[in-house]
């Protein structure tokens, strides 16, 4: 059934007494860009390292094409670790050829593929330079090329956008979109939520080692908010309306979260009851706000 799907199934991992992952579960489908977000230390990197087999899980399973990932299928994954993952003193081209060969390409194919990605990522002038002599942005491009050079069937990227300039972000986004379009499941972690919102088909939000929200960007943002400006309203004017929660109120403006079945007209009536209403608008909550909610729940928990 799960053709071309990367499944993370109830994966748990402890470091001593510290629980790093607890029943982490999600899947990345063929041709899908999956964004993986969460605050620092939530377990994103640990999940990716377990998916790559670089780390062993205490329990749970990672599957590809419906079968548990083995050492052999692992070679078909392209991986980009957080903060470098290259030999600092090795030249760009040699490094990419070496990594391609290690993933099973013949020397000739490895050279061709390395040259292709060097050209694609705008590194042609740098191909003979040592990696440590490159700017951080260019190192990041080499890093991406290293993850792609063996034409992987799955892409797992840890913070691929951190430290990139806007041009490089565009190049990186373009490449990831193309890869996904060619049927490769792509999962990447990021703190740049606007980017995730723009780029990803689906998003998973991690908190304290578990996935707390997962879905398409639209599904996650489906919470509706009302912005009401009623100058004469007193605090607590909307308390009586069912399915409504005050998110913020300052001066005349009040932002309210609306449950899916709540009646916004009831809110308007309650607002009009206080006096004149200058503004009354619906809007969707952004991913950033959703993320903040998740994090604040964590604090109160």
């Amino acid at each position: 059934m799960a053709q071309g799907v990367l499944e993370i199934d109830r994966v748990s991992k402890c470091y001593g007494d510290v629980v790093a992952l607890q029943d982490m579960t999600f899947d990345v489908r063929a041709g899908e860009l999956f964004g993986f977000v969460g605050s620092n230390g939530a377990g994103k990197t640990t999940t990716m390292r377990i998916a790559l087999g670089v780390l062993a899980a205490d329990s749970g399973e990672v599957r590809w094409d419906g079968a548990p990932i083995t050492f052999e299928t692992r070679q078909r994954i392209g991986y980009m670790p957080e903060e470098r993952g290259l030999y600092p003193k090795m030249k760009v081209l040699e490094q990419l050829v070496y990594l391609a060969e290690l993933h099973g390409l013949s020397t000739g194919d490895a050279h061709r593929s390395a040259e292709t990605w060097i050209a694609r990522l705008g590194l042609r002038d740098r191909r003979g330079d040592e990696v440590q002599k490159l700017s951080l942005g260019n190192q990041q491009r080499v890093q991406l090329a290293a993850a792609l050079v063996h034409e992987p069937d799955v892409l797992v990227l840890d913070e691929p956008f951190s430290g990139l300039d806007p041009v490089a972000v565009d190049v990186m986004s373009q490449v990831l979109r193309e890869k996904a379009a060619s049927g490769v499941p792509v999962v990447f972690s990021s703190h740049q939520l606007d980017l995730v919102e723009r780029l990803c088909d689906r998003v998973g939000i991690v908190r304290a080692g578990s996935l707390v929200a997962c879905g398409t960007v639209d599904e996650l943002r489906s919470g509706t908010q009302l912005v009401v400006e009623a100058p004469d309203a007193t605090p607590g004017w909307a308390d009586g309306v069912p399915g409504v929660r005050v998110v913020e109120s300052g001066g005349a403006r009040t932002v309210l979260d609306l449950d899916p079945d709540a009646d916004d007209q009831a809110v308007l009536r309650a607002a009009l009851a206080t006096g004149p209403v200058r503004e009354f608008s619906r809007r969707r909550s952004s991913l950033t706000e959703l993320f903040r909610n998740v994090v604040s729940e964590e604090r109160s928990a």
Binding site: L52, G53, Y79, P81, G85, L86, P88, L99, L102
Partner: peptide, 16 residues
């Protein structure tokens, strides 16, 4: 060097 540069993570995804 491999450990500090994290190359080892990339390598051990394909090497034992």
């Amino acid at each position: 060097e491999e450990k500090s540069s994290r190359v080892v993570e990339v390598l051990l995804a394909t090497l034992r």
